[in-house]
Design a protein around this nucleic acid. Structure first.
Lengths: 137, 137
DNA sequence: GCAACTCCTTTCAAAAATAAAGTAAAACAG
DNA sequence: CTGTTTTACTTTATTTTTGAAAGGAGTTGC
């Protein structure tokens, strides 16, 4: 992991569909050399995958929220299983230490679906809800 | 936005470096047709960008955390400006309603840097810290 | 001094992207 | 109902990129 690798990570973070030729030019390498570096970063597990940024609202999801989940007792499985059944709403599930046991990043078509989700979630755990108003930068 | 577009979003979410030819095959279209659909999704703002998933630990960041920021009073700017100066640590800044005014997703080389950051942050705001233990799925 | 690596470049064949032309079906106005 | 426009696609042909292979320069270790 030298400076060139860091630059490659930065460039691919900004645009992962760039050609290896273009990437090479940006880090002062030829296409094949850049491609070889990227392949190595994949093999080393530094690059875990290639994804897209999606506008959730344009996909019909107008409510974006974070949920801090608090589970009483030691048996988390029923709650985790429930969450898995609602994976369509959930972008990320983090096991955390601090404000609760889990942090969910999720999005819903609207408040109706959110409300229904919270109602069901409440059978398994307590929660604190934070609605996303804006994403900065 | 029909079913084919949704499938395209799903496929690109899983692997945004797939070729348009391969993407086309997966959604029963030719390469050029798939590319045209993707171009339209970009123009419509549904696809906002192409990115990579990075293993933060392999980049030397062993502490991954969420910070709920609570600002007293109405002048958020000093705190926001401070946060901007620390952008190297910060992956996302969300304006929220609920547990605080802002939610920061951030990562630090270690607890030393986290501690220093919190010390400085405390000049501008209160916070609640959640350390990420694991990412599920 | 001389392997054995590593990291790169150059070259070239294969694959993919892209542009252009053509087609068929749907939407729509008269 | 009919002719026109639009949309979404396929096919074809050209350009560009990828990826494999060969080779060279600079380290490293013996």
């Amino acid at each position: 992991m030298d400076e060139t690798d860091k630059k490659i990570i930065e460039e691919l973070s900004n645009n992962s569909r760039i050609t290896m030729k273009e990437l090479g030019e940006r880090v002062h390498l030829t296409g094949p050399a850049a491609a070889a570096r990227v392949a190595k970063l994949e093999d080393n597990g530094v690059i875990e995958g290639y994804s897209i940024k999606v506008n959730q609202a344009k996909l019909g999801c107008y409510t974006y929220a974070f949920l801090n989940i608090y589970i009483e007792g030691t048996n988390h499985q029923p709650c985790l299983s429930f969450i898995q059944t609602k994976e369509g709403y959930i972008l990320n599930t983090y096991r955390i230490s601090g404000e609760g046991c889990y942090l969910l990043e999720c999005r819903f078509p609207g408040n109706k679906e959110l409300n229904q989700f919270l109602l069901e979630l409440n059978k398994y755990a307590n929660y604190k809800l934070s609605i996303m108003i804006d994403k900065l930068h």
